[in-house]
Every structure is written in C-alpha cells, then in structure tokens.
Simulated assay, not measured.
Amino acid sequence: MFLDPAATPGFKRTLFNAIVAPRPIGWISTINGKGQVNLAPFSHFNLVSTSPPVVIFSCNAPADRHEKDTIANVRETGEFVTNLATWDLREPMNLSSMNAPYGTDEFELAGLEKAPSVMVKPPRVAASPASMECRLLRIVDIEPTGPGETFSNVVFGRIVGVHLDERFVDANGNFDTARAEPLTRMDGNRYSTVGRMDILGRPSPRRD
C-alpha cells in the first residue's frame, strides 16, 4: 500500500500520528510580559541534543489566531519550562489543552499548583516528577505549501536547569522513568504509558 499524504483524507490524525507513536508530551509552561501564565501540552516534543542539552516542540497555528499563546509567550520572553506529564496527571493535562482565551491561567483551570523556577520566570507544575527550565535558542516557522495545511512553529530550547522529585531518583542517581509512568500520545485521542521493556547493550564489532 502506498499513500500520498496530500491526497489521503485524514492522513494527519488517523495515519501519520499513529505511525510516529508513542510520542512524549511536552507540557510547556510559559509567561508573558504582563506576568500572565500559560500551560499547554504538545505531543510533538522530544530531545534533539544531550550536549548541549536541547529540547524541541512544535505546533500548528490555531484557527482563531496567528499562533498559539505558548509560541507568543516564548517569542516575547525567550523562556519556557517543560513539565513531565504522567499517567496520574493525564486528566489535568487534558484540561490544560482546552482552547481558552488569551491570558487564561491553565494552572488554575486544571487545578494545578505552581512551583517557582530558578533560572527562568515561568513556573513549574509542582506535581510533575521532572521539569526542565529552558531558554529559547530559535523558532523555525514552517510555511504551508498545499491545500489544507497550516502554519507551524518549531521551538528549540536549551535546558538551563532541571528539577527532579527525589522519589523517582534511584540509588545510582538515575531517573526511574518506568516508575514515573510518563504519559505518551498514541493515535487520535488515545494515550498510553510504559509497556514492555528490555535492556539492549550497544553491540560490539564482530571479531572472527
């Protein structure tokens, strides 16, 4: 079976997102110049470099404005925080995705407590077991080129501080990902967490 994305109805949600899955969720908190806080989840999120430590998230422009509030805030202040969304936090994460008027505090909307950051101004999700403070490196704007496509923004941020809940750090100083049960996005509105796991060491060159 061969599919042309431009000629396949529903490719974006029913096929593309189902193939590139599960996807980690970047639960991004930002603040604007007036001190108004925003919190929103993004399932197009990942790390792109470990040294220097860099994360990336992206989103499409909403139907009612040029760009999402998160992008507008990052452009204005150059800062954001990624908060680990977990299985236990799936309901407040979902509430924070609501299309709300600009300036709405999604922390309050989702019943979440704020925690102060150290290196940046946006607050953290206090209940999250891991948060990473970031400073903006660059925003790459992707222009639509075909019918039905929307404007997209890709954000690169350098990690300048990390907060960990010590309950999820083992005796060796490693973060226990499986115990934290990170929430991941599947296809459509389906979410999941850690499933089967295995340990695979890096293979060595064969010596005959």
Results as ranks from 00 to 15, higher is better:
residue 208 D to Y: 15
residue 15 L to Q: 05
residue 178 A to F: 03
residue 91 E to M: 05
residue 186 M to R: 04
residue 200 L to H: 14
residue 107 F to A: 05
residue 103 G to C: 01
residue 113 E to C: 03
residue 89 L to C: 11
residue 98 M to T: 15
residue 135 R to K: 15
residue 205 P to G: 05
residue 165 D to G: 10
residue 54 V to Y: 00
residue 48 V to I: 13
residue 133 E to V: 02
residue 173 G to E: 02
residue 123 P to V: 03
residue 172 N to L: 11
residue 198 D to W: 09
residue 120 V to S: 05
residue 6 A to C: 02
residue 88 D to A: 08
residue 99 N to K: 09
residue 178 A to Y: 02
residue 143 E to T: 13
residue 160 V to D: 02
residue 83 N to C: 05
residue 44 H to F: 15
residue 81 V to Y: 07
residue 162 V to A: 07
residue 195 G to V: 01
residue 78 G to W: 05
residue 201 G to A: 10
residue 131 S to L: 09
residue 172 N to I: 01
residue 169 V to P: 02
residue 34 K to Y: 04
residue 151 F to Q: 13
residue 54 V to M: 03
residue 54 V to W: 00
residue 142 I to W: 02
residue 140 V to C: 10
residue 1 M to Q: 14
residue 124 R to F: 02
residue 133 E to S: 00
residue 71 I to K: 04
residue 111 G to Y: 01
residue 128 S to I: 12
residue 46 N to T: 14
residue 140 V to R: 04
residue 65 R to A: 13
residue 18 A to D: 09
residue 173 G to R: 01
residue 28 I to N: 04
residue 185 R to Y: 10
residue 92 P to R: 03
residue 123 P to E: 08
residue 124 R to D: 07
residue 96 S to A: 09
residue 55 V to L: 15
residue 144 P to I: 04
residue 207 R to L: 15
residue 116 P to L: 06
residue 23 R to K: 00
residue 125 V to A: 02
residue 22 P to F: 08
residue 62 P to R: 12
residue 6 A to G: 07
residue 204 S to I: 13
residue 162 V to M: 11
residue 39 L to C: 03
residue 188 G to I: 06
residue 48 V to K: 04
residue 205 P to V: 04
residue 29 S to F: 01
residue 145 T to S: 14
residue 80 F to H: 08
residue 53 P to T: 00
residue 100 A to L: 04
residue 128 S to C: 12
residue 130 A to K: 00
residue 65 R to E: 13
residue 49 S to I: 14
residue 77 T to A: 03
residue 32 N to V: 13
residue 101 P to W: 04
residue 8 T to Q: 02
residue 124 R to L: 10
residue 76 E to C: 09
residue 38 N to V: 06
residue 50 T to Y: 14
residue 205 P to M: 11
residue 190 R to L: 05
residue 125 V to F: 12
residue 165 D to N: 14
residue 95 L to G: 07
residue 154 V to G: 10
residue 44 H to S: 14
residue 32 N to R: 07
residue 198 D to S: 15
